[in-house]
Protein backbone atom coordinates (compact mmCIF):
# COMPACT_ATOMS: atom_id res chain seq x y z
CA UNK A 1 0.00 0.00 0.00
CA UNK A 2 2.86 2.39 0.91
CA UNK A 3 4.55 1.74 -2.43
CA UNK A 4 1.30 2.21 -4.31
CA UNK A 5 0.55 5.45 -2.46
CA UNK A 6 3.86 6.76 -3.62
CA UNK A 7 3.24 5.62 -7.17
CA UNK A 8 -0.13 7.35 -7.29
CA UNK A 9 0.89 10.48 -5.37
CA UNK A 10 -0.17 12.55 -8.35
CA UNK A 11 -3.80 11.35 -8.08
CA UNK A 12 -5.65 13.39 -5.51
CA UNK A 13 -7.52 11.18 -3.05
CA UNK A 14 -5.97 7.94 -4.23
CA UNK A 15 -6.85 5.16 -1.77
CA UNK A 16 -8.39 7.37 0.93
CA UNK A 17 -11.44 5.09 1.25
CA UNK A 18 -9.70 1.76 0.72
CA UNK A 19 -11.17 -0.81 3.10
CA UNK A 20 -9.49 -4.20 3.39
CA UNK A 21 -12.66 -5.69 4.91
CA UNK A 22 -14.58 -4.90 1.73
CA UNK A 23 -13.59 -8.11 0.01
CA UNK A 24 -16.36 -10.32 -1.35
CA UNK A 25 -13.83 -13.05 -2.06
CA UNK A 26 -13.16 -13.61 1.66
CA UNK A 27 -12.74 -16.34 2.93
CA UNK A 28 -12.33 -18.08 -0.40
CA UNK A 29 -9.21 -16.09 -1.11
CA UNK A 30 -6.43 -15.36 1.35
CA UNK A 31 -5.68 -12.12 -0.45
CA UNK A 32 -2.05 -11.19 -0.91
CA UNK A 33 -2.43 -9.61 -4.34
CA UNK A 34 0.29 -12.00 -5.51
CA UNK A 35 -1.15 -11.80 -9.02
CA UNK A 36 -0.36 -8.09 -9.24
CA UNK A 37 3.19 -9.18 -9.90
CA UNK A 38 1.99 -10.90 -13.09
CA UNK A 39 3.14 -14.28 -14.31
CA UNK A 40 6.34 -14.15 -12.28
CA UNK A 41 6.05 -16.93 -9.75
CA UNK A 42 8.70 -19.56 -9.33
CA UNK A 43 7.20 -22.16 -11.66
CA UNK A 44 7.17 -25.87 -10.85
CA UNK A 45 9.44 -28.13 -12.91
CA UNK A 46 8.10 -28.57 -16.44
CA UNK A 47 6.75 -32.05 -17.19
CA UNK A 48 8.51 -33.20 -20.38
CA UNK A 49 6.25 -32.46 -23.34
CA UNK A 50 6.39 -35.85 -25.06
CA UNK A 51 2.85 -35.89 -26.46
CA UNK A 52 0.83 -33.34 -28.39
CA UNK A 53 -0.80 -30.96 -25.91
CA UNK A 54 -3.10 -28.24 -27.17
CA UNK A 55 -3.01 -25.07 -25.11
CA UNK A 56 -5.30 -22.11 -24.81
CA UNK A 57 -4.15 -19.09 -26.79
CA UNK A 58 -4.88 -17.07 -23.67
CA UNK A 59 -1.81 -18.48 -21.98
CA UNK A 60 1.78 -18.25 -23.19
CA UNK A 61 2.82 -21.82 -22.57
CA UNK A 62 1.89 -25.33 -21.54
CA UNK A 63 1.29 -25.64 -17.81
CA UNK A 64 4.00 -27.29 -15.73
CA UNK A 65 1.97 -30.50 -15.56
CA UNK A 66 -0.71 -31.86 -17.86
CA UNK A 67 -2.48 -35.10 -18.70
CA UNK A 68 -1.35 -36.75 -21.90
CA UNK A 69 -3.40 -39.91 -22.07
CA UNK A 70 -5.61 -39.12 -25.08
CA UNK A 71 -3.71 -36.84 -27.48
CA UNK A 72 -5.65 -35.45 -30.45
CA UNK A 73 -5.81 -37.80 -33.43
CA UNK A 74 -7.68 -38.37 -36.67
CA UNK A 75 -10.30 -36.01 -38.00
CA UNK A 76 -11.45 -35.08 -34.50
CA UNK A 77 -7.85 -34.16 -33.71
CA UNK A 78 -7.74 -31.86 -36.74
CA UNK A 79 -10.90 -30.15 -35.54
CA UNK A 80 -9.46 -29.76 -32.05
CA UNK A 81 -6.26 -28.22 -33.39
CA UNK A 82 -8.34 -25.81 -35.43
CA UNK A 83 -10.41 -24.89 -32.36
CA UNK A 84 -7.35 -23.96 -30.35
CA UNK A 85 -6.55 -21.12 -32.74
CA UNK A 86 -9.42 -19.28 -31.11
CA UNK A 87 -9.73 -17.89 -27.61
CA UNK A 88 -11.88 -19.23 -24.82
CA UNK A 89 -14.51 -16.53 -25.40
CA UNK A 90 -15.04 -17.49 -29.01
CA UNK A 91 -17.56 -19.85 -30.59
CA UNK A 92 -14.72 -20.59 -33.00
CA UNK A 93 -13.18 -22.41 -30.07
CA UNK A 94 -16.12 -24.31 -28.58
CA UNK A 95 -18.24 -25.29 -31.58
CA UNK A 96 -15.45 -27.16 -33.38
CA UNK A 97 -14.64 -28.89 -30.08
CA UNK A 98 -18.24 -30.06 -29.66
CA UNK A 99 -18.23 -31.22 -33.27
CA UNK A 100 -14.90 -32.97 -32.72
CA UNK A 101 -16.41 -34.81 -29.74
CA UNK A 102 -19.20 -36.19 -31.94
CA UNK A 103 -16.81 -37.14 -34.76
CA UNK A 104 -14.63 -38.80 -32.14
CA UNK A 105 -17.52 -41.08 -31.13
CA UNK A 106 -17.76 -42.39 -34.70
CA UNK A 107 -13.97 -42.79 -34.79
CA UNK A 108 -14.26 -44.76 -31.56
CA UNK A 109 -16.74 -47.17 -33.09
CA UNK A 110 -14.60 -47.62 -36.22
CA UNK A 111 -11.58 -48.18 -34.01
CA UNK A 112 -13.44 -50.83 -32.01
CA UNK A 113 -14.56 -52.62 -35.18
CA UNK A 114 -11.02 -52.52 -36.60
CA UNK A 115 -9.85 -54.29 -33.47
CA UNK A 116 -12.55 -56.90 -34.05
CA UNK A 117 -14.59 -55.64 -31.12
CA UNK A 118 -18.28 -54.94 -31.67
CA UNK A 119 -19.20 -52.46 -28.94
CA UNK A 120 -21.99 -53.75 -26.73
CA UNK A 121 -23.99 -50.53 -26.69
CA UNK A 122 -26.63 -51.99 -24.37
CA UNK A 123 -24.03 -52.88 -21.76
CA UNK A 124 -22.22 -49.56 -22.22
CA UNK A 125 -25.46 -47.70 -21.60
CA UNK A 126 -26.02 -49.65 -18.40
CA UNK A 127 -29.25 -51.18 -19.65
CA UNK A 128 -28.92 -54.05 -17.19
CA UNK A 129 -29.46 -51.56 -14.36
CA UNK A 130 -32.38 -49.93 -16.20
CA UNK A 131 -33.95 -53.34 -16.73
CA UNK A 132 -33.59 -54.15 -13.06
CA UNK A 133 -34.66 -50.84 -11.53
CA UNK A 134 -36.57 -48.97 -14.21
CA UNK A 135 -38.39 -51.60 -16.26
CA UNK A 136 -41.51 -49.52 -16.79
CA UNK A 137 -39.53 -46.72 -18.49
CA UNK A 138 -37.81 -49.22 -20.79
CA UNK A 139 -41.15 -50.82 -21.66
CA UNK A 140 -42.65 -47.39 -22.29
CA UNK A 141 -39.73 -46.43 -24.57
CA UNK A 142 -39.96 -49.77 -26.38
CA UNK A 143 -43.70 -49.32 -26.83
CA UNK A 144 -43.19 -45.80 -28.21
CA UNK A 145 -40.51 -47.18 -30.56
CA UNK A 146 -42.74 -49.98 -31.82
CA UNK A 147 -45.63 -47.58 -32.21
CA UNK A 148 -43.45 -45.16 -34.18
CA UNK A 149 -42.20 -47.91 -36.49
CA UNK A 150 -45.75 -49.19 -36.99
CA UNK A 151 -46.98 -45.65 -37.70
CA UNK A 152 -44.23 -45.02 -40.27
CA UNK A 153 -44.90 -48.40 -41.90
CA UNK A 154 -48.63 -47.70 -42.04
CA UNK A 155 -47.98 -44.26 -43.49
CA UNK A 156 -45.60 -45.64 -46.13
CA UNK A 157 -48.00 -48.43 -47.07
CA UNK A 158 -50.87 -45.95 -47.13
CA UNK A 159 -48.86 -43.63 -49.35
CA UNK A 160 -47.97 -46.47 -51.70
CA UNK A 161 -51.55 -47.61 -52.02
CA UNK A 162 -52.50 -43.92 -52.44
CA UNK A 163 -50.00 -43.61 -55.29
CA UNK A 164 -51.62 -46.49 -57.07
CA UNK A 165 -54.95 -44.71 -57.13
Amino acid sequence: MEDLAKKFEHIKGWGIDADPKNDPTYPMKKRTNAEHAGYTWDRPTQQPIDVEVLHSNERPNITAVFGGTVPPSGLSGKLRRYAFQYGESSYGHWLPLLLADRVNVVEGIIDDLKKGHVPNIFAERGMKASWKHDRSTIMKKAAIGIFAIAAIAAWKLGKKSGERD
Binding site: K30, E35, V53, S56, R59, T63, V65
Partner: peptide, 15 residues
Protein backbone atom coordinates in the same frame (compact mmCIF):
# COMPACT_ATOMS: atom_id res chain seq x y z
CA UNK B 1 -3.90 -17.35 -2.02
CA UNK B 2 -5.52 -20.76 -1.39
CA UNK B 3 -7.54 -20.67 -4.60
CA UNK B 4 -6.55 -24.28 -5.25
CA UNK B 5 -9.51 -24.76 -7.57
CA UNK B 6 -8.03 -22.09 -9.82
CA UNK B 7 -4.40 -23.17 -10.21
CA UNK B 8 -2.71 -21.68 -13.26
CA UNK B 9 -0.19 -24.50 -13.73
CA UNK B 10 -2.42 -27.52 -14.23
CA UNK B 11 -4.71 -27.16 -17.24
CA UNK B 12 -3.00 -26.05 -20.46
CA UNK B 13 -6.19 -26.16 -22.51
CA UNK B 14 -7.92 -23.38 -20.62
CA UNK B 15 -7.22 -20.37 -18.47
Amino acid sequence: QELYGNCHEAAPQAT
